[in-house]
Design a protein around this nucleic acid. Structure first.
Lengths: 337, 337
DNA sequence: AGTGGCTGAGAAAACGTTGTCTGATTAGAC
DNA sequence: GTCTAATCAGACAACGTTTTCTCAGCCACT
């Protein structure tokens, strides 16, 4: 066995292995990629040499040659919003199982930046997942030109050739309204999300149809998606005499709860509160929050499934809608009357 | 001007542009990279052709040639833990400003998987940021062999050649203890974090020295890092007659608060509670939580700064410690005595 | 024994880009 | 007017890998 013949400072490559093991480069490549190699003697020699030299494949070169990036881009509006990390978790699990990597960017809730980021990502990704994109439909329409498969979550995309996975917020909302109606509430307030939010649209729609069906009166306001928003806008609803409030999400509900505490209005005896999302702290609030639980991680998983299918078959998958379900805790009760 | 001469199905490359604009490939590259080109006529022709053909550079090829990835890997123990998304946010901001991309992986709090992930990441990143790594020192010691610059946050790494950025939790803890002592508390409980956590070590250390200095008695227990843990372990501390409790983080504090509510023990009149982290909901809890605020986004920014420096100069930066500061809200008060 | 088919390893091309080197062209100096 | 120096565009190699193609060797069959 000859001396080590790797080139001086550089990282070891398959060329080094080939030299050292006295086989051809192609053979090294074949062995290392697990493709059929007849001569088991060669194969073991190559493998042995590879470990000896501490070979680690140059992923960039590999991806370059293969013409792929093995990378999936994800755009989220705000990482600090507890909703998205959960989606990301479900996504990350599946994506890495599929031997891909996850490139995550935060658009800071900014529609323009979102568009830019997607364009930039497109250059270095095999596919992109857009979580609850805030950009207008017109911007969305420019994305197919990027030539990268795209899946949107929580957003309808019209006729655009994107895979989409959403959550049936409307149904969740109907469950919430039904629950409150059953408790005897006749006037419900809605602390709505940002107007640009597709989910908020779904929820408002579910709210108004359910309310009409059940003979419940609705007052609503556009709050936002943070606790501050809930805290700020709750009084507006209170002034209209509602006996229960549904919030756009748990964060908003938490803000509302905080305001109610300041006002010394007991929950649920003076006012019932329902959230959306079921973030982990929801169960630990005072009182534990009744909320519509959304399958966040599942959303991530399905988004990947859709993108994966698109990458494999080139076919844009069917639109998907995941169910939401109400979790009743202790922030809702019959109205004081 | 001749017909378009791009090759059939493929994406347009600089070769296509060169053909079409009737210049050399090198010239195209030079123009597109903004390197000095004497003949402005050529330059504009190239640029025009590039836009006409809708050229988008092949990032993989570029990175391959340049021998870099333009990608930074980040390993976090758990994305769903509200601490990390904030670190990530600070990090993402700076990293993308530096024309790099962020590869995020979640180790699921699993030390073994963490090690594997880092090894895998090393292949496709210019540098790695390890957020609060859970792996033992012995595993950490194997990482330099990967040949990739690494920065650790919230972890001391001994003599290992890693940049490190931490938060001075000990000082935060001292502030918390001083605050409680000043209010008159003489027996304090600590709902500690996981034993593997470096931050927890720092906090315990700060706790015991501060307590000794101020003549305060301490009972402590190992809870964990979730609300469930706080909820489960609080009674243990209560049994020892403490009048105030400091939690490993806000999540644990929230669990404790929930348990106290069940026990109908008012906060802060019956028991004072202090958290750590200052997550956004902390201000909206009942009562608003007194907590040690940690500069999470700054931590991310400094981690990048350290890694960046290491990439540029090859020098491992000095260890850094960021200050923590107590935010007094309404979950602390004088003991009932 | 000679030939055809088949197997499998090695040689070489290709991927798209950057950067070095070469050679031409031009300006300037004597 | 000729020679040198300077400048700048173009040719081409290189990056590490995969993959196609070539060709040597072997077995089986005539």
């Amino acid at each position: 066995m000859g001396r080590t013949v790797t080139r001086s400072g550089k990282r070891t490559t398959i060329v080094d292995i080939a030299r050292q093991a006295e086989v051809s480069i192609s053979t090294v490549s074949r062995v290392l990629n697990g493709r059929p190699v007849a001569d088991e003697v060669l194969a073991t020699r190559v493998r042995k040499t590879a470990t000896e030299l501490g070979y680690r494949p140059n992923m960039v070169a590999r991806d370059f040659r293969r013409g792929v990036t093995s990378t999936i881009g994800v755009v989220v509006p705000d990482l600090a919003n507890p909703f998205f990390p959960h989606v990301l978790k479900g996504l990350a699990e599946e994506v890495s199982a599929g031997d891909h990597r996850l490139l995550v960017v935060d658009s800071g809730e900014d529609a323009d930046q979102e568009l830019q980021l997607v364009a930039q990502l497109a250059g270095s990704c095999d596919g992109i997942i857009l979580c609850s994109p805030r950009m207008p439909q017109s911007s969305l329409a420019t994305l197919p030109a990027l030539g990268v498969p795209i899946v949107c979550t929580n957003r309808s995309v019209g006729a655009l050739p994107f895979g989409t996975v959403g959550i049936d917020s409307a149904s969740g909302m109907r469950q919430a309204v039904a629950h409150l109606a059953e408790l005897g509430h006749r006037q419900i307030g809605y602390l709505g999300g940002p107007g640009t939010s597709w989910s908020d649209g779904l929820r408002r729609e579910g709210l108004s149809t359910a309310a009409a069906d059940l003979g419940v009166k609705v007052s609503s306001t556009e709050a936002g998606s943070t606790s501050d928003d809930g805290h700020a806008k709750l009084p507006e609803l209170l002034a209209q005499g509602v006996t229960a409030v549904i919030a756009f999400n748990d964060l908003v509900a938490i803000g509302a709860l905080a305001r109610l505490r300041e006002l010394e209005m007991d929950v649920p005896s003076r006012l019932s509160v329902v959230g959306f999302d079921d973030i982990p702290v929801a169960a630990f609030l005072g009182p534990p929050l009744t909320t519509v639980s959304l399958p966040k991680e599942e959303l991530g998983r399905r988004a990947w499934a859709g993108l994966h299918q698109q990458l494999e078959t080139g076919q844009v998958p069917q639109e998907e809608l995941l169910p939401a379900s109400l979790v009743v805790r202790h922030s809702t009760a019959a109205p004081a009357d």
